[in-house]
Amino acid sequence: MSSLSGRLLATNFGSPPGVTVGDKYVRSLWHITYYIGTPLAALVVGLIIWCLVRYRVKPGEEHRVPAQFQYHIPLEVAYTIIPLILVAVIFGFLYGGEDKITNVSKNPAIKITAEGFQWGWRFTYPNGHQEQGTYQAETNINSVANLPVLYMPANETVQIRLISDDVDHGFYIPAFLFQRDMIPGVNNVVDLNVTKTGTYLGECDQLCGVYHSYMRFKVDVMPPSTFNSWMSSQAPHSITNAGVHQ
């Protein structure tokens, strides 16, 4: 919990920092929601507590009947109009950011297909190379050593096509502050532009059957040059199975 208060004091108000270019839109929405929501909540809670403390019936005056009033039109109009304006402000902020996040580029640096199935992942690169792995290779949830890996270049637009072989899955990488469902019959294409290299953990976040909790993967974000040399070292249509040492 201490880390929550620490994060609350930091600029992101509880939300962990993201590592993609979309992070700044998410962050601005957290900010605007906090700036509007916190004072409003404080006001309402304060008024409730004030009422309970100030107007709580004192011993001996149980039969006092308070003044009976019911309407105050200007006040009522005020607390209808002001929330409307606040909501409009929030909507204005999100309308721009949402377009940026869901935007799909016409000429991405690389197109990868991510395929979810019960219960594993398959990542197909432009040359036909596949990285895949299933839960059988990895039944100990505490280890990430044998998970399938999605390799990506940093600072470039990576376009990922999300498909599902059987039931609904969810493509979720917490550090990217982003997810998208993989639904049979729905063609989802997302753009990711990660600004920080490193290894991140991804998971399926749509209940997809018994071993749903084990359906995880790793994302390895590399500098573009490293990625390009890795890519060229993979033979076309080769398959790497996670957890199987070749």
């Binding site: 409003l40 309402v44 008024l47 409730i48 009422c51 309970l52 107007y55 709580r56 019936v57 005056e61 149980e62 006092r64 009947v65 308070p66 003044a67 009033f69 105050h72 006040l75 009522e76 607390y79 209808t80 929330p83 409307l84 909501v87 929030i90 909507f91």
Partner: peptide
């Protein structure tokens, strides 16, 4: 987001109902 507005109205009306009442807790 619009649903927040009538919900907010309800909150303020609840507070208005308690306001200057004799509240039995």
């Amino acid at each position: 987001l619009l649903i927040a507005v009538p919900t907010g109205i309800k909150f303020f009306n609840w507070i208005g109902t308690m306001w200057r009442g004799t509240i039995t807790l």
